[in-house]
Amino acid sequence: MRNAVTDTRTQRHVHPSILLVILCTAAFMSTLDVFIVNVGLRSIGTDVHDTSLADLSWVLNAYAIVFSALLVPAGRLGDRYGNKQAFLAGLALFTLGSLGCALSSDLWLIVGLRCLQAVGRPR
């Protein structure tokens, strides 16, 4: 069993300024994503063959619902497994979802990938 002194010596410390830049960049990415989808909703509708506004609204709504539903459980997972691991896993999921959305031309696949983005959105 390792003692507290050993644990403290083996941990790497990141300069607070670097950490602040990383966290601000992640927050900027997720906020920018929400605004881009709002602005580009009409273009998305055109690209997926003029779907109805009701169907198209799920691109925004699914993201908001999933993000809201998972906010507390994701925080709990971060507490349990470590904030750094939760942050990196979330960032990877968010990036994969973003890439999938960019490459997709099917509305419901985009909605599913937006849900994946919401699961991974950096908190």
Rank of each mutant, 00 (worst) to 15 (best):
N3I: 08
A4T: 04
A4E: 15
T8A: 13
R9V: 13
T10N: 13
T10D: 15
Q11M: 11
Q11R: 15
Q11N: 10
R12M: 13
H13K: 14
H13V: 14
V14I: 10
V14S: 03
I18W: 11
I18C: 00
I18M: 02
L19F: 06
L19T: 13
V21G: 02
V21Y: 09
I22V: 03
L23K: 10
L23C: 08
C24T: 08
T25K: 05
T25M: 01
A26S: 04
A26P: 00
A26G: 00
F28P: 01
D33L: 04
V34E: 02
F35E: 06
N38V: 10
V39P: 04
V39Y: 12
V39R: 03
G40L: 11
I44D: 08
I44S: 10
I44H: 09
G45Q: 15
G45V: 15
T46G: 11
T46V: 12
D47I: 06
D47Q: 08
D47H: 12
H49V: 09
D50T: 03
T51Q: 15
T51C: 09
S52W: 09
A54R: 04
D55N: 10
L56P: 04
W58A: 00
W58G: 09
W58L: 09
V59M: 08
V59D: 08
L60I: 07
L60C: 01
L60Q: 10
L60A: 04
N61H: 12
A62D: 00
A62P: 03
Y63I: 06
A64R: 11
I65F: 12
V66P: 03
S68E: 05
S68K: 11
S68H: 02
S68R: 08
S68T: 13
A69Q: 09
A69N: 12
A69D: 04
L70T: 01
L71K: 10
L71I: 10
V72Y: 07
P73E: 14
A74C: 15
R76L: 15
R76I: 13
L77T: 14
L77V: 10
G78P: 03
D79T: 02
R80H: 03
R80M: 14
R80N: 12
R80L: 14
Y81A: 05
G82S: 12
G82V: 07
N83C: 14
N83D: 15
N83T: 13
K84V: 13
Q85N: 14
A86T: 12
F87W: 05
A89T: 01
A89N: 05
A89I: 09
A89V: 07
L91R: 00
A92H: 14
L93E: 00
T95M: 07
T95K: 02
L96S: 03
L96D: 00
G97H: 10
G100E: 01
G100K: 05
C101V: 06
A102K: 03
L103Y: 02
S105I: 06
S105Y: 05
D106W: 10
W108Y: 05
W108E: 08
W108C: 06
W108V: 01
L109G: 01
L109V: 11
L109I: 15
I110P: 06
V111P: 11
G112R: 01
L113Y: 08
L113C: 00
C115K: 11
C115A: 11
Q117V: 06
Q117A: 05
A118L: 12
A118D: 07
V119N: 08
V119S: 11
G120P: 02
G120M: 00
R121G: 14
R121W: 09
R121C: 15
R121M: 12
P122L: 03
P122M: 04
P122T: 02
R123Q: 08
R123D: 07
R123H: 02
